[in-house]
């Protein structure tokens, strides 16, 4: 389980996170949602040690994150994080070199599934292909947790379907997933937990099935209530 306990973060004078606490269990899909600037990406980066926090704590399966742990937690950024001049095959070789849990077989399987070409250079990829390559590189690691930043942003409808299909496949089974997005509509039936953020504060968090069962509201309904105020 990934736990955030009263996490606070400032950028200069701007309070980006103002005491955020939530849990994301293993084997479930947790969605961080909120308008731009709500602090979604910052939370993922803080978990990955890509940006320091001022106070509060982050625990992964009970212990503080440390560098070696980033083999068990994978971060899929909304940008490609490989040098533009690398070919996809070079990216795979790079990952193989540094990660013991890189699963080449799955990487190649996904390459075919997403119809990407191993000889293509990173900077020649379209937005949709880049998003797929990003996701692929995350999925190809046998990790316990996966953090995905806006996996659907700038992605066309067909790529979106392909990406959504991954979340209902055995590739994510048993993993703890945190994803950020502000486009809930098409994936809302995939989500186990929803954490809603606004200006660095959690405004609401709930289990989506409970919300439907107890209040008869969809995640989108709740979003409307929360953000349209």
């Amino acid at each position: 389980m990934i736990e955030l306990i009263d996490v606070k973060k400032r950028f200069g004078l701007k309070k980006v996170l103002q005491g955020v606490s939530f849990n994301a269990p293993r084997g479930a899909i947790t969605c961080l949602t909120g308008l731009n600037g709500a602090g979604k990406t910052t939370i993922l980066k803080a978990i990955m040690g890509l940006t320091p926090i001022q106070s509060g704590s982050i625990r992964i399966d009970g212990s503080a994150p440390h560098q070696a742990m980033y083999e068990r937690i994978v971060y899929v950024s909304d940008q490609l994080t490989m040098p533009g001049r690398m070919r996809i095959a070079d990216c795979f070789a790079f990952m193989q070199d540094y990660y013991r849990n890189w699963n080449s077989e799955r990487a190649n399987e996904l390459l075919a599934r997403f119809q990407l070409n191993a000889a293509d250079k990173v900077n020649s990829l379209s937005k949709g292909m880049a998003a797929k390559l990003n996701l692929l590189m995350g999925l190809a690691m046998d990790a316990d947790y996966m953090l995905l930043d806006e996996p659907f942003s700038g992605v066309d409808i067909f790529s979106r379907e392909e990406i959504a299909a991954v979340f209902s496949s055995d590739m994510v089974e048993g993993r703890g997933i945190i994803l950020t997005t502000h486009e809930i509509k098409e994936i809302e039936h995939l989500l186990d937990y929803v954490v809603m953020l606004d200006h660095g504060l959690i405004t609401k968090q709930f289990a989506s099935e409970d919300m439907r069962m107890e209040e008869g509201k969809s995640v989108v309904d709740v979003m409307r209530e929360v953000y349209k105020r």
Binding site: Q67, E71, T81, M82, G84, V122, N123
Partner: peptide, 16 residues
């Protein structure tokens, strides 16, 4: 630039 490779380098599972 468009591809922040530093993110990847910082996430490598070995001491920075």
């Amino acid at each position: 630039g468009r591809h922040p490779f530093m993110t990847r380098l910082l996430m490598l599972p070995a001491s920075r």
